[in-house]
Computed example of a mutant assay.
Amino acid sequence: MDASSPSPPPRFALMEPARLFLLLLLIVGPAGCGTIPKVIILNDPLSNEEHLQLGLSYEARGEWDQAISEYETALDKGGSASVIQGYLGNAYYGKKDYIAAEQAYRKSLHLNARNAPVLNNLASLYLVDRKDLLEAERFVQQAIEIDPARKPYYLDTLAAIYLARTEYDAALAAYREATALSPSDPVLLKQLHEQQNHVLELLEEKASDRTHAPVKSNREDRIEGNSH
């Protein structure tokens, strides 16, 4: 299992409430002593995988703190650190705690440098935070090389990076390639079509601005040239 892809994580049914109860032992002092009962947790019956699934359920509903708590418990119970750190990064990303998200993504990549979805999500984080967009592009290119099956999703991220750098032709080409390669994912296809139309509008505006830009006369050019 790897960290979730750019598409929303699948929704998992919550477990029956009875399965979420921890085993408790009440230790009561001698009768009449007024001792307050103590509750001691003997055992958590859920496995790290079950906590991970609960975390995904919370994340799908946007309950970020609960998701983070479940992921951390899964980690404490021996779950794959490279995988769970990726999920933690996604939850912190959703919570808009971008510093914690980057830390989690980097921990995941330190353990598995070829986790393509995490590379893509780290690039998305750089895009949101307007960090080094050239580095963000390198992350996405790595993801595409490692995991070509998810190329349409990664191209969507790459196109957004080009768009942020006002490289409209490159952005349009990436969106078009992503559309051509897209699986039957109506959400992704709708987003790609909307983004293509947006880029086309930007290109039209750019062409219009260039057409209507004031043109200096030769006399003005000569005056400016003589002033240097």
Rank of each mutant, 00 (worst) to 15 (best):
G32V: 03
C33Y: 14
C33H: 15
K38H: 10
K38T: 13
I40W: 04
I40L: 11
I41C: 11
I41N: 12
D44K: 13
L46G: 02
S47C: 00
E50H: 09
E50M: 11
H51Q: 05
L54D: 01
L54N: 10
G55K: 15
G55W: 13
S57I: 04
S57K: 09
S57L: 02
R61M: 10
E63F: 12
E63P: 11
E63I: 05
E63Y: 14
W64D: 05
D65V: 11
Q66N: 14
Q66R: 15
A67L: 08
I68W: 13
I68D: 00
S69H: 14
S69I: 13
E72V: 14
A74D: 00
A74K: 10
A74H: 05
L75W: 06
L75E: 02
K77W: 00
K77L: 01
K77I: 00
K77H: 07
G78F: 01
S80Q: 13
I84C: 04
I84N: 03
I84T: 05
Q85V: 08
Q85L: 13
N90F: 12
A91R: 09
A91S: 03
Y93A: 11
K95T: 06
D97V: 01
Y98P: 03
I99D: 12
A100N: 05
E102Y: 15
Q103H: 14
R106Q: 04
K107M: 03
L111E: 01
N112V: 04
A113G: 09
